[in-house]
Design a protein around this nucleic acid. Structure first.
Length: 303
DNA sequence: AATAGGACCAACCGCCCAGAT
DNA sequence: AATCTGGGCGGTTGGTCCTAT
């Protein structure tokens, strides 16, 4: 029982979007918000498939899209994330504010994949004789295996209830002054943002802090936990002993900032007392910094 | 100057998943 | 439990631009 097509393709525009279509779509979404993509074209008066509208918005029209060349830092980050995550473009894009999965995917396929491949392949293995660019791409992708054993299957694991004990939010002293080139990755591979977060060694990941079943049951929160989404700005809490935390990856990713479902700010951020700096500043810098730290401990014990 | 092939990138396609009914 | 719907993802395609010859 497959699903019905998202729309009948008859009578719909396809191919490149016109400026007028962009305008209509943007205006409609500004007025009515995102979502209900299937009905959107009809309501907005667009002769487009709903999925096409969604894609156009997410990849091009969204106001927080960062356009222009990918910086060297971003490039390095992409390479390292790809090493960790494989072709999980949306996850990778989630760590690069303003960049879309499509953009990163394209960039990888056209540029980085070849670079990474050139770096990782030995001379005798450079026998890629494909003349066609698509063949080259395929060859690149297939030969540039992202160490399958280390690929994190993020979709497989969900954690819907998370506790952040507030009693001792002692920041790791190195958090804001870590040295990305330090040769000593954290022995425990604790998550840098919080001492109660640590990673399980399975590829299914994750142990989320110190919480009991009772605690889990007493707090119910519907949002996903995805460890890759752990950013300082997502740690929010009331003044109580603990608080549920929103780790909803998809929301944050798709909307850049979660303006639809942001958690109520009932109190100061958990780490306000010690994270006075980058933690709540520009998320772009934060993402790159915190992730660099994370990636620099890439010997974390995944098996 | 012409043109063939490569590079780039927006858009499409098919599949999957989670939540709702 | 089965089915439907909305949304999302990764892979692929095709048009356009660029570059080497």
């Amino acid at each position: 029982m497959g699903r019905s097509p998202c729309c009948s393709k008859e009578g719909l525009n396809r191919g490149a979007w016109t400026a007028m279509e962009d305008k209509i779509l943007t205006a409609y979404i500004k007025a009515h918000g995102e979502g209900k993509w299937r009905n959107l074209p009809k309501r907005a008066g667009l002769k487009r498939c709903g999925k096409s509208c969604r894609l156009r918005w997410l990849n091009y029209l969204r106001p927080d899209i960062k356009r222009g060349n990918i910086s060297h830092d971003e490039e390095e980050l992409i390479i390292r994330l790809h090493k960790l995550l494989g072709n999980r473009w949306s996850l990778i894009a989630g760590r690069l504010p303003g960049r879309t999965d499509n953009e990163i995917k394209n960039y990888w396929n056209t540029t980085l994949g070849k670079k990474a491949n050139a770096q990782s392949t030995s001379p005798q293995s450079k026998h890629t004789t494909a003349t066609n660019s698509r063949q080259k791409k395929l060859a690149t992708e297939s030969s540039n295996s992202p160490l399958p054993a280390k690929v994190i299957r993020t979709k497989a694991t969900r954690c819907t209830k998370v506790f952040i004990p507030l009693q001792s939010p002692h920041p790791p002293p190195e958090f804001h002054s870590f040295n990305p080139t330090a040769s000593d990755p954290p022995a425990q591979t604790s998550f840098p943002n919080h001492p109660s977060q640590e990673f399980d060694s399975s590829d299914q990941l994750l142990h989320c802090g110190t919480f009991t079943n009772e605690e889990l049951q007493s707090y119910h929160h519907d949002d996903d936990l995805d460890f890759l989404n752990l950013d300082c700005h997502e740690f929010q809490a009331s003044d109580g002993d603990a608080a549920p935390v929103d780790y909803n990856y998809k929301e944050n990713l798709s909307s850049g900032h979660d303006h639809h479902r942001s958690l109520p700010m009932e109190g100061p951020p958990v780490f306000n007392d010690w994270a006075t700096s980058a933690c709540f500043e520009d998320s772009a810098n934060l993402d790159l910094d915190s992730l660099s730290f994370f990636l620099d401990s890439e010997e974390w014990p995944l098996q």
